[in-house]
Design a protein around this nucleic acid. Sequence first.
DNA 1: AAAAAAT
Length: 632
Amino acid sequence: MAYVPPHRSRTEGSGDSSSSPVSSSRKGGDFFGHDDGNNSRDGYGSYGGNRGYGGNRGNRGYSGYGRGGRGYGEGYGQRDNGYGGRNGSYSRGDNKRYGQGSFTDGVHHPAPKNEKLERELFGDPAEEKAPSGINFDNYDDIPVEVSGEGTPDPINQFTSPPINELLLENIELSLFNKPTPVQKYSIPIVGSGRDLMACAQTGSGKTGGFLFPVLSSLFENGPSPVANEGNVFARRKAYPSALVLAPTRELAIQNFEEARKYAYRSWVRVCVVYGGSDINSQLRNLERGCDLIVATPGRLNDMLERGRVSLKNIRFLVLDEADRMLDMGFEPQIRHIVDGCDMPCAKDRQTLMFSATFPKEIQVMARDFLDNYIFLSVGKVGSTSENITQRILYVEDDEKKSSLLDILSATDDTLTTGLTLIFVETKKMADILSDFLISQNFPATSIHGDRTQSERERALEMFKTGRAPILVATAVAARGLDIPNVTHVINYDLPGDVDDYVHRIGRTGRAGNNGLATAFLNRGNRNVVKDLIDLLHDSNQEVPDFLSNIARESPSGRGGRGGRGRGRSTPYKDYRKYGGGNSGSSNWGSRSNGYGDNGYGYNNSSSGNGNGNSSYGSNNYSSASSSNSQWW
DNA sequence: AAAAAAT
């Protein structure tokens, strides 16, 4: 029986304050003050709506499990997940078996429409909605670069050639009517069986860029014929056909929620696993069938070790925000998942890697994980250009609080119409600042890695719904999260890297809407000043005099690291074509296996895991990454 | 330097 660490036996929701380790209002506090002994109005279990695993109340043990309409997708004929005794509680309550289709005799049988589930996934059709909030005209002049052998032509509509009919219906329910540039390319690329390395950011339609072609293929082709390993525990083991890895829990949840929409009525059952929340409910959910799994690396590895997930049926591997995962030191864990378990090798699966930037480490990972891939680089929609107004203010550290109050008071109309996202550099500052704002009667909450997972999820939900329209965040929210209606991003503390700055301000001005980005800067930030000035120039923004002055004070080259992504307005290049060009990286630059400058000699050198590349796999990379890790 | 991620 699965093991439950004592400290995790407390409830997942914040409903049971008696068992919560934090009972004062200090840490769990937000604008609404009290610590929510009973947050019935909250209704935010894990995945939006009030159905998350192990909801908010009464979920000691298993007794309350499965209540309240949580039943997305179970019960399609060929799947047998019932080992009777233990799961009596599953059948309790209104545990409706709706929404899941099946795939039998080589034919996909979508489930009938289900109004309740449809509302849950896509929202109430009665509410008027802007068509997905995206101004598609803004997509037309996005620079796109695509390269690689035999690159298929992009599509221009979802209907020519037509993608899977059920998928198309689900896309239409999501109010997308036209593919974004990344989708125009990714759909035929993946559809033709190729691997894809895509440089694209949130806001480019990246999630659909991988979910559409993957689900389309799964819908068409059905489950893998390799059913299981035939052992007695097999029914307790999940054999997903597709795996999506994401760097943060919130991003995993977001991908999961998107995938659920597009998988509606299909045979594909979507699950998500991530740390910080009860593993047992996640395991129980897997037992009910799992065809597409969205995961953060640590929790997935845990489940792999427990033998509760097998990757041998994987046909699609997606690495989302790959550069971020490397920044966070996930490379050993990712390599363990991809190379160290039972996942088919690169030639026997399709791999899609997405990354905002394309530094050397990512190129290396692409070479190791992808097979003869097509490289796609998509400039960001709007990005740092005219639809985000960037404002840099000179503010000393000890004046930041009062400046912030001035700004928030002066722009209080945005509080009613939009959301304000405030970035700080430390978790401590996130707490300090949100407490301060709350004490000043601003409806704020905070998200950072020291809050419990349920606090994090609740904070995000309060922010999204506008009940707490000010969110103080650390880097956990800097990338990937797609929160509509953020009208103002404030860099209370500037990040040390201008790439992070770009990601942060990209939380506003999404897809055609205007946004405002304010940053507090003082001499403590001089290391980013030069890059910042370049960026402001590139994006047609005013460069304040004090900024130029500070830049002149430090005559040395641009601070910090060398060789970071310059030329942000142009897409990243396919290094296979341009010969790498990285500064001093001996190991890489001197490679003789065709990645250098002889055009496309790369085609068959990337099968699997670095065979034929010994200099690389064992020196450079593994020593660097294993030094600070207890992982493999 | 800090953050994130299994416990």
